[in-house]
């Protein structure tokens, strides 16, 4: 499975996020990296150094776009200017799939620049799925939605987060960027079993996996991306790979960024699970149905 229609039938391995402090190292040393994930918004500009750097990277590496401001779950119409700029960038990068978050962040033309959690309602699922479809149709590439870490739950919710994720991706017919660290962070904040979440994810839709570090405080856990991946997250990753099969994996490290080699070596630890995984993952939802038929 790693290659599926939600990741453009690609077979990517372990990648890392492209970050400014690593530019010089990458251009000087040309390290072997399977792929880089870029934050789309950093390159949705008209010119200058950001695009020059991107073009240099594109000459030598495979790049996948990850966004932070599409806000699939916002209740109002999509920003056409944003979509236009994003499409221009996808043509430049030739990203085989594009990911952004299952969240909201703007209303009435004002932006919070945060990945705010959605109420898990049927109305929210319907609106979100509709917007994902519109983006997918406009960009003409597969979309993968990423589960976010959250610190609040709503009275309005009618289902669990994993039920909501299923509801949305089936209605939108899109892929999933499964962030196992985000599941862990939310499980600590909302007291649920993170393995139940991982087991409920429709495996055949997983296009990519995120791993990252987090920070525990007395009363809550924060998604800080500022240190290595912790053991509980590696356990969840192992379970996810067991279910999904070898899948494009990306380490996020966004604060207190260490050397390139330190970040890359941390990411490559994922290979222990990818290589250990047998060639045949657990039965998929679709194959299981076929087997029964």
């Amino acid at each position: 499975m790693p290659a599926n229609r939600f990741n453009g039938f690609t077979d990517y391995g372990v990648g890392i996020g492209l970050r400014v402090p690593h530019y010089n190292h990458i251009f000087a040393e040309k390290p072997v990296v399977d792929w880089f994930e870029i934050i789309s918004e950093n390159y949705m500009v008209d010119g200058g150094r950001p695009l020059q750097v991107l073009d240099q990277i594109l000459d030598q590496y495979r790049v996948v776009q990850h966004g932070v401001s599409m806000y699939f779950g916002s209740a109002q119409p999509l920003d056409r200017e944003h979509l236009k700029r994003l499409k221009t960038l996808t043509r430049r990068t030739k990203t085989p799939w594009l990911s952004d978050h299952l969240c909201w962040g703007s209303v009435d033309g004002t932006y919070t620049h945060d990945l705010l959690p959605l109420p898990y309602t049927f109305e929210a699922a319907r609106i979100t799925a509709q917007r994902i479809r519109e983006v997918q149709d406009y960009l003409e590439i597969p979309i993968a939605v990423e589960n976010v870490s959250s610190y609040a739950e709503f009275h309005e919710s009618q289902m669990t987060e994993w039920e909501f994720l299923n509801e949305v991706v089936h209605a939108a017919d899109c892929g999933i960027l499964l962030d196992v660290n985000n599941i862990y962070v939310s499980s600590q904040n909302h007291r649920f079993d993170p393995m139940v979440y991982v087991d409920a994810v429709p495996a055949e839709r997983v296009a990519q996996i995120h791993i990252a570090g987090h920070s525990k405080f007395e009363k809550y856990t924060l998604d800080t991306h500022d240190h290595p991946v912790l053991d509980p997250v590696w356990k969840m990753y192992a379970r996810a790979i067991e279910r999904v099969g070898n899948t494009a994996t990306l380490l996020e490290w966004d604060d207190n960024i260490p050397t390139f080699d330190e970040v890359h070596n941390e990411a490559l630890k994922a290979n222990r699970y990818l290589h250990a995984n047998s060639s045949s993952p657990l039965p998929l939802e679709s194959t299981a149905h076929e087997a029964r038929a």
């Binding site: 996020g17 970050r19 400014v20 402090p21 934050i39 918004e41 950093n42 990850h66 932070v68 978050h101 990945l115 990423e146 976010v148 870490s149 985000n182 990252a212 924060l222 998604d223 800080t224 991306h225 500022d226 996020e252 966004d254 604060d255």
Partner: peptide, 13 residues
């Protein structure tokens, strides 16, 4: 002043 860019969904301090 060091250069930086927009990061992903990590929290801000």
């Amino acid at each position: 002043t060091p250069e930086s860019d927009i990061m992903s969904n990590a929290v801000s301090e």
